[in-house]
Write a protein that binds this DNA or RNA. Structure first.
Lengths: 223, 223
DNA sequence: AATTATTGTTACATATTGTTAAAAATAGTT
DNA sequence: AACTATTTTTAACAATATGTAACAATAATT
């Protein structure tokens, strides 16, 4: 989970923002003033700081300056009132990375956060899986065998990823289903078996690879 | 390259200035009168306008006024004859950001331009997106591939921006629609898919770029 | 061996997306 | 206003992804 720090004194607005950013990806810590903000910054080492310019006590600029004294990397996104146009210049001089004028749509905020957070997040993603003689590009959703490139669908890709990550180990049916079909809480059908069947044909060129069934338990990818 | 606009009627001086500002950073467009100047302003959306006060026809103040009617951001730097001291006040009231008295040293001009351009530099970071071998100019809504320049429509441009800002991550259909079609609260059609299709053909020259669909979820731009 | 439960496979139904063309809306010009 | 060019939406059909059903194959149990 990627930690975010939100410093915003309007409690209701802060809560709404925190609530909406909170997701499978992000965990949001929210506080209302600069001192607490700086404390939390050092505590959490957030991926992105979202910083209201107008704050009681230490204002946003002062906080940004403090942060930049010890850290020049962590992206800072300023929230400004619509009126304070000029201050934006100030913000960027202090090392801000982006800003949003209030009122803004939460969607827009999300997009910006994604953009800012992603730079650092990128390194954690392992994009290419070497599966026997195959290479799967999890980002592009492609499976390559020698010169041949096969486009995978999203679920096919997720399924291969899941099996590969637990290669040579049994993966339980229920776990696969929860991972690949997260929304279908009443998934009862047999799609999983169908997908396994299809994946087997995809991977048939390398005889060392096989996906074996453990009856009534799950599957195991062997390499 | 950061575009500058120079409006100066003394041809020789204009050429010298243009020549000296022209560099790896800046591309200078030069014209001799206000009407052409305004035309070029809208065409180029320059980072800084360098504006002689004394011009035949529309004078510098009138041009600045015209510009400020539609744009309050772009810095304007006035060039004034040594004699017209008082008019400087006038200039700043019209939204000038700096001025230089003739004769001035080219070094000084450079320094001022740098200062003005840098202030808005963040705009240019956002303005130009390097997308693989392409460069998109978000302000002029143009997509450049090598020598080839393609004019984009507003929504095409917004869509590319949105996907690029969250590159290598899934962007949800709903989020795209909210961002690119903000007013259409009852957007039901399939324009998004059509636009995706078109953008794919625009970006097809660079094989590293692809936009993959995640069924029932959204799209992901991969670079 | 017969029965049963589970999985393998194929075919098909359905929903979503890809693509193209044409219609409608919009902006710009005369 | 009328015409033009451009942008955007709609419509139509093709292609693809995914879920379901049907039946075959296999393993476990009786």
């Amino acid at each position: 989970m990627i930690p975010l720090l939100l410093i915003e004194d309007e409690t209701d607005l802060g809560l709404i923002i925190a609530d909406n950013l909170q997701s499978a990806e992000y965990s949001v810590s929210h506080c209302a003033d600069g001192e607490q903000g700086l404390f939390l910054f050092h505590q959490l080492k957030p991926a992105v700081v979202i910083l209201d310019v107008m704050l009681p006590g230490m204002d946003g600029f002062a906080i940004a300056k403090k942060i930049r004294e010890v850290d020049t990397e962590t992206p800072i996104l300023f929230l400004t009132a619509r009126t304070q146009t000029v201050d934006v210049v100030n913000a960027f001089e202090l090392g801000a990375n982006d800003y949003l004028r209030k009122p803004f749509s939460l969607e827009e905020l999300k997009v910006r956060i994604n953009a800012l957070a992603q730079r650092n997040q990128w390194q954690y993603q392992k994009r290419f899986l070497q599966i026997g003689d195959y290479v799967m590009d999890g980002m592009r959703q492609q499976l390559q065998y020698k010169e041949e490139i096969l486009n995978l669908s999203f679920r096919e890709c997720e399924l291969i990823k899941m099996l590969y990550e637990s290669k040579n180990k049994v993966v339980h049916r229920q776990d696969i289903i929860q991972a690949v079909w997260p929304n279908d809480r009443f998934f009862t059908g047999r799609s999983l078996d169908v997908f396994i069947s299809r994946i087997r044909t995809y991977l048939q060129h390398d005889k060392r690879i096989s996906i074996v069934n453990i009856r009534a338990v799950g599957y195991k990818m062997i390499i």
